[in-house]
Amino acid sequence: MAFTRKAQTYSSSINEVTIGTGDKAVTIGGSNVMPLYSFDAPLKNKIAIGAEITDSGVDRTLPGIASYYEGADTIAEIAKRASEMPGADFVALALNGADPNGENRPVEECVEIAKQVSDAIDVPLVITGSRNVEKDTALFSSIAEALQGKNVLLVSAKEENYKTVAASAIMAYGNKISAESAVDINLAKQLNVLLSQMGINPESYVMNVGSAAAGYGYDYVASTLDRVKDAALAQNDAMLQMPIITPVSQETWAVKESIVSEEDYPDWGSRESRGVDMEVCTAAAVIAGGSDAVILRHPQSIAAISGMIADLM
């Protein structure tokens, strides 16, 4: 008897969330099949890739990054260059310098940088904060106001500050947020419930369910992503149908493989190619697990992942 293939489609689907404005706005989510199962049904939207820059520019100690950004010196020039990176759909500005335990860049300066970046690009803008709850609450509120109507995505609101961040970013100024739950699936759902109980429209936020570099507890990320997609699609759990964004680069460029020098570890070879490998394999894994958008740093990683997505769509 001939084999008859049955498509595994679901009556439920992931929400669609749009970031940015105009022709280059990006919509993520929308699919009603397991991640990348384009053989079951066409994927509604392409998985989006963000090119990461930081408030202090880019890491020019890596030759590939230095050459790509050559001649781009101001934050606006750097942002413009990032927005033109082949394979990238949006720019992700990481306000690492805002961290009170680091450079502690004041909110006003961060807002100014965010405005310069926003003005320099025509693709959507995603902004990641300092990861300090208090600072980010103030930061996201001010940025949301300064970039009112630009439909930027602020990453991320947490259990401690979701009310303030959602009220200002979404309700007052019409931007988007992600809800961060650090590999805690019950918290991921709870945050979505709390946001929905505030009356926030589900098309106004995404999830960041956490990430880890491959080999650094990634198995927890994998099982979290699997369980989220199973609940969202197979169990039609409306409180887990938000699309997922994963800031990959901040994890993968902070692990030993991407940091130690070739002089110290000659057997390991070039630091840059190690870092790219970590970034590519982690990004590929989170996309296979169900991430609808990833943030990456290196042009080579972005080229590799955008090629992978194009082949699998």
């Binding site: 019950n186 709870q190 709390l194």
Partner: peptide, 12 residues
């Protein structure tokens, strides 16, 4: 395990 736990599960 028919429905994922969240602290507010009774409200949804």
């Amino acid at each position: 395990n028919n429905f994922l736990y969240a602290d507010s599960f009774l409200e949804i």
